[in-house]
């Protein structure tokens, strides 16, 4: 049975570098995709990704396992993203605006070269639809998919209430299902 994330983080705070490597290995992919699909520019995503992990490293001695490690990690990521959007003139209000259009078109992630053309098309639609989601809905969806967070944990990570998080997640999923023709 694998060691829980929270214990790994405590072990790292206690000086165990290998614990951090395990923790990093578990969460790097999800966190990276969460950021990449939020900001869409790979260079910015990499920069933010590094900053977030550095903050985790620096906050190690203050870490208290009061919630899931993933919730804590994605809370840090959320705050960093909010700062990022704010610095680019995107008010946080737009985070909560369910119908706010996105400020820029989706660049889209790179595609799996092995996929069939039809599947690529569907996935392309899905990717575009994710990129076209309002910020708050997209964030809720990505936190759910990449971070494995529940609605309550999404609410905790984003500083909203559970009902709002549930609502955002539901709206996002409905739109994405519609986009891939799975209604």
């Amino acid at each position: 049975m694998s060691v829980p994330d929270e214990q790994l983080m405590l072990a790292y705070a206690g000086g165990d570098a290998a614990a951090f490597e395990t923790l990093y290995g578990r969460h790097k992919g999800g966190l990276f995709r969460f950021i990449l699909r939020s900001v869409k520019a790979r260079g910015e995503a990499e920069e933010l990704f590094q900053e977030i992990w550095i903050r985790v490293v620096e906050a190690r001695s203050r870490y208290q396992p009061q919630a899931k490690f993933a919730t804590w990690l994605y809370t840090i990521a959320h705050h960093r993203l909010v700062d990022h959007w704010r610095a680019r003139g995107l008010a946080v209000v737009s985070l909560d605006d369910e119908d706010c259009p996105l400020p820029e078109p989706a660049a889209g992630p790179s595609w799996d070269p092995q996929a069939t053309a039809e599947a690529r098309e569907t996935l392309g639609r899905l990717s575009d639809a994710i990129a076209a989601l309002p910020l708050a809905q997209r964030e809720a969806f990505l936190l759910h998919q990449e971070g494995g967070l529940t609605a309550a944990e999404i609410a905790a990570a984003t500083g909203s209430n559970e009902e709002a998080a549930k609502s955002r997640l539901r709206y996002a999923m409905n739109k994405l299902r519609e986009a891939i023709g799975d209604e």
């Binding site: 790097k28 995709r33 899905l126």
Partner: peptide, 26 residues
Amino acid sequence: KLSARYRELAREEPPVALDAAILAAS
């Protein structure tokens, strides 16, 4: 179904150099 579709999207990972930098910092 939606989750399965989503998982079919590219599974981007951070570059190896970035991994190394973060682990070294840790």
